[in-house]
Design a protein around this nucleic acid. Structure first.
Length: 255
DNA sequence: ATGTCCGTAACCTACGGA
């Protein structure tokens, strides 16, 4: 067996976050990282800077919004740059050192009465359908910003979410459908407080009050033994952070 | 909770999105 560190992080613009991303890659040293909201076109993706740190990269992006990437220093072969019928750059899947790694940026949904909400549900249905015919035992990690809080305890106060997206039964049923297919929702060990939030709104001092949400997930298949997982809160602190913190997961892979 | 930050287009400010 060999130890492999994987991570997911919504960077909220790789351009604005590049110094922090490069520092984070060096200090946390994930073998493979899934990134979301790169907000750049392929032409401006920092392939060279990542390569200097030993990372190969696959990026799917078209500029202003969305954009996902997989970066790896244990080898990388691109497998899929999207889901059938869905054109926005929200899905990148690659084979990395024997592990199939998929970076997803699920649509936000905006509000329940917005057409974007139906789009979000359909997007999650398509993600689930992409697993039809796939062997559930094969080593894989699907990770990213799902924009769904799985349980009431995954938001700071469920009472504040009446009529909101991210906590509806429809969204949760689709997240559960992925798990029921055969994936494990890797639970990060508690850090500050007892709930492993991964996102805090920039406004109103939400991070400092720990009024957050757990909406970023690492979903692993049963053949991937996980021995540690934590939310890297340090990456949410200081000057010009993303509004998301990374989830870092250590696992053993058969060599 | 509505106290911010991002990229963009078009100009040093306003806007859509999150």
């Amino acid at each position: 067996m060999s130890s492999v560190r994987i991570a997911t992080w919504n960077v909220n613009s790789i351009g604005a976050r590049l110094p922090r991303l490069l520092d984070w890659l060096q200090t946390r040293a994930p073998d493979v990282a899934a990134l979301q909201e790169t907000k750049c076109a392929d032409a401006t993706f920092p392939y060279a800077e990542l390569e200097e740190l030993g990372y190969q990269a696959m990026h799917v992006g078209d500029g202003r919004w969305n954009g996902v990437a997989v970066v790896s220093k244990v080898g990388l072969t691109a497998v899929a740059d999207g889901l059938p019928g869905l054109t926005e750059p929200r899905y990148a899947s690659a084979e990395c050192g024997g592990l199939r790694v998929t970076s997803v940026y699920v649509p936000n949904g905006r509000s329940i009465d917005d057409p974007q909400f139906r789009y979000k549900l359909g997007w999650l249905d398509t993600l689930r359908a992409s697993l039809d015919g796939v062997a559930a035992q094969s080593p894989m990690a699907i990770m990213g910003d799902f924009n769904v809080a799985r349980h009431d305890a995954d938001v700071w106060d469920i009472g504040a979410f009446g009529g909101s997206t991210h906590v509806t039964a429809e969204e949760r049923a689709r997240l559960e459908g992925l798990i029921d297919w055969g994936l494990t929702d890797v639970r990060a060990r508690p850090g500050k407080g007892d709930r492993p939030f991964t996102y805090w709104d920039y406004r109103a001092g939400m991070f400092h009050k720990d009024l957050g949400m757990r909406i970023d997930y690492v979903l692993t298949s049963s053949s991937v033994p996980v021995y540690d997982a934590y939310v890297d809160r340090e990456a949410r602190k200081g000057r010009l952070p993303s509004d998301h913190a990374p989830v870092i997961v250590d696992l053993d892979l058969a060599t």
